[in-house]
Design a protein around this nucleic acid. Structure first.
Lengths: 230, 230
DNA sequence: GCATGTGAACACATTCACAGCA
DNA sequence: TGCTGTGAATGTGTTCACATGC
């Protein structure tokens, strides 16, 4: 059994979590088998795209029948490495950081808020959802101790770049950045930006277009998963 | 002066907010002129891509010189229709909904939280950041009264689909969905999903890859603006 | 017969490279 | 000379369509 070499295309990776969710729901509904057509419909993607995506994980389908839900769910789970524990550090214990800490989004997979850091003395020492807020200076120690590889930046924009640098230096490999700042990540660090202002601006663009323009042209799919009917 | 017909490609639209931000910073630094190379560097994109993106807005550059910052900023502002008022409704006044209400992300452009709705009697009637939380049943009225076209879904996953339908029916055209659910939007409605669980799963994928695989292959850019060094 | 997995065609976005203009 | 704007080339993801195998 050899490690899969061919890297999975990025757009495909962004869809895997969707399939994972749909499959989980199907499994909980005791659905045993599903065709690429059904699965694609539920996930809101083209059936060929779905089959191509799954083919990157290996061969899990049965011609003439479809996919075994449990089996496929396992495969996606393994591809995303969700079976292992994923401790996370959240930098920034403001409104957003605290809201994220309490979020349900972590329950799926082995995600767990293992650490919260901030620089504000008023926040350091407080406890959010059972996690002690530490000072940013303790970052290295905490990350090493807990073997943290995933980080979330929920700081003000001005601190974002520095925070990303510190996280990377501490050993964090992938970062979800909620701060409205353009961050140029260090070598080999993957940063994904979730930018409320940018999202709203895009939505405004399309809303404005919908208003003054009754023509279609609304794109079916957009980078980052914008959805609109075909 | 005719309305621009050619629709701007979706990937280009996702980058406009980035340019907008960089240009704003430059303007505040009293920079008057900028070349595509400098601007592209700051925004983290290829210079040719930047020029192509800007060419969709019209002709704003001067060969041999570059772009006038203020002038270009205006152009991007106009393209994104940020000069007008954009009242927003947030559905769901839980931790996340309240955190978003207080967020700084709205300050850019004419975004303003005009309404907050929820179904929980314990939340309805409370005031968040100066905005009264109303019951979901009042949605139609509020949206019509305030001429709201933008909505944010911050409800539990189970309610997301229904909430999107209601928002659309009330007159909202573009929706930012924070609920971890796959939403198939109604005709002509644009939905953009911000899915914490999905984002973490993707990040886990790349973090795992970085660990067991010292080879490069980390993608330079990913849909939805994942960033990693070239 | 029926659905997978995939070669091949297609559709785009990105990037190069340069003509043209300040 | 320097930089824009854009044809053309490239690279990549999506989709079609079907050979293959259950």
């Amino acid at each position: 059994m050899s490690r899969r070499r061919a890297s999975i295309p990025a757009p495909s990776v962004t869809r895997l979590p969707i399939y994972h969710r749909v499959l989980r729901q199907m499994a909980s509904r005791r659905v045993t088998t599903v065709s690429s057509l059904e699965l694609a419909e539920e996930a809101g993607v083209n059936a060929a795209t779905l089959r191509r995506d799954l083919s990157h994980l290996g061969t899990y389908g049965t011609p003439g029948t479809g996919y075994e839900v449990e089996h496929l769910l396992d495969a996606v789970d393994r591809a995303l490495t969700l079976s292992r524990e994923w401790p996370i550090v959240i930098a920034g214990a403001g409104d957003l950081g605290r809201a994220l800490s309490r979020s349900r989004g972590f329950t799926t997979g082995g995600f767990r808020v293992a650490a919260l850091v901030d620089v504000d003395p008023a926040r350091v020492g407080t406890v959010v959802n059972g996690v002690l807020v530490r000072h940013l200076d303790e970052l290295d120690e905490v990350v090493r101790l807990e073997a943290i590889r995933l980080g979330i930046v929920a700081t003000p924009a001005a601190s974002a770049a520095d925070t990303v640098t510190r996280l990377a230096r501490a050993g964090v490999r992938s970062i979800l950045n909620f701060a409205p700042a353009i961050v140029t990540p260090p070598e080999r660090i993957v940063v994904r930006n979730v930018d409320l202002a940018a999202e709203l601006q895009m939505l405004a663009f399309y809303a404005a277009r919908a208003e003054l323009d009754e023509s279609p042209a609304a794109p079916t799919s957009l980078p980052g998963r914008l959805r609109s009917p075909g």
